[in-house]
Design a protein around this nucleic acid. Structure first.
Length: 581
RNA sequence: GGGGUCGUGGUGUAGCGGUUUAACACGCCAGCCUGUCACGCUGGAGACCGGGAGUUCGAAUCUCCUCGAUCCCGCCA
C-alpha cells in the first residue's frame, strides 16, 4: 500500500475525476459550518481538501495544524465562483472520503507560515519546523539547482571533480584554524581545511588539467550574516590558462546558474573595475552597482588659502571627497543627517553634511564660482544634500562608501525591480601586499600563492612593494564578494621570496611548505583558478537576508547550534583518549 | 577585543512622562456559522515583563551588574 498517488502541489486539472490518495501536513483548517476545508501541504505545494459528510467534518474537527494525514478522495473541478487564481491548485478540490492521521502534532513553538518573522535562534532550535516553510523549501531548491548546474557545467567542460581532505595541516598564514586533536599522535593536531588551495596546486602539478570541487571550508573567525564557521565553495583550477580564460569560464557558469536557478538572463562579459577605481568611486572593493551614487574626489577645488581647514587639508596630501544625495532619494532633517554621519564615522575622517540651497552649497566660505564648480562636479542640484569628508588614504572613501551603501538601501527599497536585479562586476588590479601596522610587515591581500604582475614586481619589490599589483580578481555581485582567484605562482624561488616578504619565517617556509616547493620545482604547469562562495550565491539568488536562510543547519553568531547544541563538552574519557590526561 | 540595538503570554509587538485587571494581533481551547481560501463571529485559558542587585512608599518602566540574541568595526575570502 502506498501513502499517496501524487504530491499535493501537483494535483491539477488533468486529475479531475480520478480517485486518489494524498498525504501531507495540515496547513490550515477552515470550518465554515456544514463544510470544512483543509489545506494539505507538502514540499510541492498545497491542495484543498473538502469535508462534507458529518463523519468527515467530525474527523477534521479533531485535527491540529501540522498533523500528518493521509486521505482518499476523487478530484473534482471547483465551481467557477470558487476557483482561486492565486493558488497553483486553485481550480480543483478533493472531497475527502477517508482520512487517517499518520502522526499528530501536539505543540508548535511558532506558526510555520510566520517562521520568517520569528527570532532566529528559535528558528534554529526548531529547524525542522522552520524548514517546512515554503520559503525555506524554495531556498533549498535554488541551492540544489545551483549545485547541479555547477556540476554539470564543469563536467561538460572536461573538469574532473576531485575531493581533497578536510583533515589537513595547520599553516601559519590565513585565518584561524579549527583544530582536531589526533588520538593516535598525541599532542598533534589536524586543522580543518580553510580552502583546498594547496591541494589543487598539487593536483595541477599532478597533471590534472582541469579540476573542480564543491567543497566545505572551515574558518575559526567571528561570524556575520554572510559568514559561517563552515561554508561551501565552488573551487576550480585549470592548467595552461590565463586570466581571460578564467573569467570566461566563471562568467559562463554564473550565466547558467542564474538562468537555471531563477530563470533570469544576465549579460556577459561582466564589467571590470580596478581596485583603485572601486575604492575611489565606491569606497569599497565590493561595490553594489545596482545604484550609482559615486564618490567624487575634489581636493583640488579647495586649493585656495582662504578656505582654511579645507585648504590646509588639501595642501597636506589629505583627500577631500564628497557624495551627492539627490533630493529625490532622501531629504534629511538635522537628526537624520547626524545619524547618517554616525553610521559612517571613522577615526581621523572629518565630515561635513551640507545642503545645496538656492544660493549654492552650504559651505559659506566658498566663493560663488567655486560653489558652482563643485556642484557641477558632483552633479548636485539645489535641494540635494552633500556629504564632504576629509581624511587620509582610502579612509575618506571608505567612510563615504558607508554613506553610499546606507543611502543605496533607500534607493533599493523604493524600487523592487532594481533591488531584485543582479549586477555582477569583476574587481581586478588588487595590490599584492598591504601594510600591516600591528605586525609591522607586509600582508598578502589575497593569499601568498597569487602571482604578482611580474614587470612591476621586478621593478618595485625592494623599493615600493605596495605599488605591485597581483594577477587576481574578485567577482562581486550586489555588494557581496562571491569569490576570488587568479594566476598562481609556480616558480619556487618566487614563492619563497613572497613568503619572506609577508613575514613567514625561514623555518616555517622550509618545514611547512617544503612539499609545495618540491612540487613547483618538479614541473608544475602554469595555472589559474577561482573559488566561489556557494552560500553567498544562494543567498543572493533567493534574496535572503542571511546565509543562515540557505544553509539547512547553520550556526549562530557564536558558532553554536541551538538545535543539536554543539559545541559541547566532552567526557573525561574522551579527553584522556586524545590528550592523554 | 570594541561599539550599537534588542530581551514583555506559544509567536510578533505595544506599554518605558513611576501608581494599569500589563494591551493588541496571530496561535491555542470551547462554541456558532453550508463555499471558505490570511474565512468570519462569540467566549475562554495563557506573562510574576531574560536574571541579579540597587534607588523609591511604589519599578516592565530609572541606575548598575550579568546572561542571551543580533548588527557593525576589528578579524576573516
Amino acid at each position: 500500500m502506498s501513502y499517496r498517488d501524487i504530491q499535493c502541489g501537483l494535483v491539477t486539472k488533468e486529475w479531475i475525476g480520478k480517485s486518489i490518495k494524498l498525504a501531507g501536513w495540515v496547513d490550515r483548517i477552515r470550518e465554515v459550518g456544514g463544510v470544512t476545508f483543509i489545506l494539505l501541504r507538502d514540499q510541492t505545494g498545497i491542495s484543498q481538501l473538502v469535508c462534507e459528510s458529518t463523519e468527515m467534518i467530525e474527523l477534521a474537527h479533531k485535527l491540529h495544524h501540522e498533523d500528518v494525514i493521509s486521505i482518499d478522495g476523487t478530484v473534482r473541478e471547483r465551481k467557477q465562483k470558487d476557483k482561486n487564481e492565486s493558488m497553483e491548485t486553485g481550480e480543483i478540490e478533493i472531497p475527502v472520503s477517508f482520512l487517517s492521521v499518520l502522526n499528530s502534532c501536539t505543540k508548535l513553538p511558532f506558526q510555520i507560515q510566520k517562521s520568517q518573522e520569528v527570532d532566529e535562534n528559535l528558528r534554529m532550535k526548531y529547524r525542522y519546523l522552520d524548514i517546512r516553510n515554503p520559503r525555506m523549501h524554495n531556498n533549498f531548491v535554488v541551492r540544489h539547482k545551483l549545485l547541479q548546474t555547477t556540476r554539470n557545467y564543469f563536467s561538460d567542460l572536461g573538469f574532473l571533480e576531485i575531493e581533497t581532505p578536510y583533515l589537513g595541516k595547520s599553516t601559519p598564514e590565513g585565518a584561524r584554524d579549527f583544530l582536531v586533536p589526533s588520538r593516535i599522535n598525541q599532542g598533534k593536531y589536524y586543522a580543518l581545511t580553510q580552502s583546498p588551495q594547496l591541494y589543487k596546486e598539487m593536483l595541477m602539478a599532478g597533471g590534472v588539467d582541469k579540476y573542480f570541487q564543491i567543497c566545505r571550508c572551515f574558518r575559526d573567525e567571528d561570524f556575520r550574516l554572510d559568514r559561517q564557521p563552515e561554508f561551501t565553495q565552488i573551487d576550480m583550477e585549470m592548467a595552461f590558462v590565463d586570466e581571460d580564460d578564467l573569467h570566461e569560464v566563471i562568467e559562463g557558469l554564473m550565466k547558467k546558474v542564474v538562468k537555471n536557478c531563477i530563470g533570469a538572463e544576465i549579460e556577459t562579459p561582466f564589467s571590470v573595475i580596478s581596485y583603485e577605481d572601486a575604492m575611489r568611486t565606491y569606497g569599497t572593493d565590493k561595490p553594489d552597482l545596482r545604484f550609482d551614487l559615486p564618490i567624487k574626489t575634489i581636493s583640488q577645488m579647495f586649493l585656495n588659502p582662504e578656505y582654511k581647514a579645507f585648504y590646509i587639508a588639501a595642501s597636506d596630501r589629505k583627500t577631500i571627497a564628497a557624495i551627492n544625495i539627490s533630493k529625490d532619494i532622501a531629504q534629511y532633517s538635522r537628526k537624520q543627517s547626524d545619524q547618517l554621519i554616525e553610521q559612517c564615522k571613522m577615526d581621523e575622517v572629518a565630515f561635513y553634511f551640507v545642503k545645496n540651497k538656492e544660493n549654492g552649497i552650504g559651505l559659506n566660505f566658498l566663493t560663488q564660482e567655486d560653489k558652482k564648480l563643485i556642484a557641477d562636479e558632483l552633479k548636485s542640484e539645489p535641494g540635494d544634500s552633500i556629504i564632504f569628508a576629509i581624511g587620509s588614504g582610502y579612509q575618506v572613501f571608505e567612510a563615504l562608501g558607508r554613506a553610499r551603501s546606507v543611502v543605496g538601501k533607500e534607493i533599493l527599497n523604493k524600487n523592487e525591480e532594481l533591488k531584485n536585479s543582479f549586477r555582477f562586476t569583476w574587481v581586478n588590479k588588487f595590490p599584492l601586499f598591504l601594510w600591516n601596522e600591528d605586525k609591522n610587515s607586509l600582508d598578502s591581500v589575497q593569499h601568498p600563492f597569487t602571482l604578482p604582475k611580474m614587470d612591476q614586481y621586478i621593478k618595485n619589490i625592494d623599493t615600493e612593494p605596495l605599488d605591485i599589483e597581483s594577477c587576481s580578481s574578485d567577482l562581486v555581485l550586489n555588494g557581496f564578494e562571491l569569490g576570488s582567484g587568479g594566476i598562481r605562482i609556480v616558480d619556487a624561488e618566487l614563492q619563497k621570496q613572497i613568503f619572506e616578504k609577508v613575514g613567514v619565517s625561514a623555518q616555517d617556509i622550509d618545514e611547512q611548505f617544503d612539499y609545495l616547493f618540491n612540487a613547483l620545482s618538479s614541473g608544475a604547469p602554469p595555472e589559474a583558478g577561482f573559488a566561489l562562495g556557494v552560500d553567498r550565491i544562494a543567498m543572493l539568488l533567493t534574496h535572503s537576508a542571511s546565509l543562515r536562510d540557505v544553509i539547512a543547519f547553520p550556526k549562530n553568531t557564536r558558532g553554536a547550534s541551538p538545535l543539536t547544541k554543539e559545541p559541547s563538552e566532552i567526557t573525561k574519557e574522551q579527553h584522556k583518549e586524545v590528550f592523554g590526561e
